[in-house]
Design a protein around this nucleic acid. Structure first.
Lengths: 148, 148
DNA sequence: TAGCTAACTGAAAAGGTTTTTCATTACGAG
DNA sequence: CTCGTAATGAAAAACCTTTTCAGTTAGCTA
């Protein structure tokens, strides 16, 4: 497993005083192996390839921890709102393909001017924002619809 | 109840061939009486002031209908993601006060340039977006923190 | 106004997801 | 290697949302 991303994430647990257990390794592998947001149940299923008896409870607890450490981000989906993807550090936004659910993170954020306008118009002091963009990824654009 | 907004919304049910029942009136009253997003359970509680035996199931069914008619919008909140506010027609974004949860809808959307950049950068064909902004509303700015 | 029918309703039950509890296990410091 | 503590899986509890179903109501027709 000569994956630099894995090592970086693994180190993150240790750096904050948390143990690097087999179940947590399995969850990392599951998340690293996909670009789609995965539900807790999907993470458990895929993680069991690495840790046979990975429990769903552990997935929830680990996601909670990883969310607190900003290692993972929750993605609100149209149906439910409970998908998770590995996070890129810093402020990012997601673009989710509406056909295959592939996710790209857009690093950098040029919403400043727009938010200034909003502040002026509403009288609110703006402290944060959440943006999700949906579209059709390059691969899916080259395929006839409804065949993915 | 000489509320013009109530009449407009009430008419909306009829205009689409749906009945205007007491439970539905109660739900409208509950939503009209607040600027915060309300959970289904909160809508039931407040609606019972107008319709004593308003059931939670009816709240869910009515919200589903109102969502389809674009009378109401789901707001994803930091904790859960299941609040509802009355919708302004057209494309809008929400600004939610992080202290008192008051919501303002921002009409109009100047994200076009940003989305063009995202399209170029990612190769995705952009089809939609969801933006929520958090901040501190004018009222709360004038109060000392932690006293709302 | 009275009668009629489809739409709507509340209660109960089912279905799903997330959290809590608790005895056991395993990480990793020493 | 040993030990203490954090982490784990299973079971149960707690939620939230949807489905089912028999009874009720809105509002059209006469």
């Amino acid at each position: 497993m000569m994956d630099h991303r894995f090592d970086t994430l693994a180190h993150e647990f240790r750096a904050h005083g948390h143990k690097l257990t087999q179940p947590r390794r399995a969850i990392l592998h599951a998340l690293l192996a996909t670009a789609k947001p995965l539900s807790p149940a999907e993470i458990q299923q895929r993680g069991q390839d690495f840790c046979h008896d990975l429990g769903l409870v552990t997935v929830y607890r680990t996601l909670e921890l990883m969310d607190a450490l900003e290692m993972v981000r929750a993605v609100h989906l149209a149906d439910g709102c409970h998908g998770y993807v590995l996070a890129t550090p810093g402020h990012t936004h997601h673009v989710v393909c509406e056909r295959c659910h592939a996710v790209i993170e857009v690093i950098g954020c040029e919403l400043g001017d727009f938010l200034d306008t909003v502040a002026t118009r509403t009288g609110y002091q703006i402290t944060g924002h959440w943006l999700e963009i949906s579209g059709v990824c390059a691969d899916c654009q080259h395929e006839p619809p409804h065949e993915a």
